[in-house]
């Protein structure tokens, strides 16, 4: 019951929203998040969006991950979470 899954916003109608994940659509509640835009990702848990995913942070972390993986023989562990 505790699974929280990022899903893409497809429709917004007040505090109700329609989201999509892996081709499946779900009706969710948006009471706990502010304004959300179509195509934004929200973290959905127990039928409610509980947070809006930060795309910029995701892109930054991904870039850092790629950097870590491209290092051939790094001898220390940089901070991937900083």
């Amino acid at each position: 019951m505790c699974l929280a899954i990022p899903m893409r916003i497809i429709e917004v109608d007040g505090t109700r929203g329609l989201v999509e994940s892996s081709g499946v659509r779900y009706e969710i509640r948006l009471d706990l998040v502010g304004d959300v835009r179509i195509d934004e990702f929200v973290l959905v848990h127990a039928g409610y969006a509980i947070q809006v995913m930060d795309e910029e942070a995701a892109a930054e972390q991904l870039a850092l991950l790629e950097h870590l993986l491209s290092e051939e023989a790094g001898d220390s562990l940089p901070d991937p979470g900083a």
Binding site: P6, D31, L32, V33, G34, L43, I50, Q51, M53, D54, E55, A57, A58, E60, Q61, D79, P80, G81, A82
Partner: peptide, 19 residues
């Protein structure tokens, strides 16, 4: 360390905390 910055931010979700 915050290794999930795309969802975890300082203060969290203030609406949810307040609710």
């Amino acid at each position: 360390v915050n290794a999930y910055p795309r969802a975890v931010r300082p203060g969290g979700n203030s609406r949810a905390v307040e609710a």
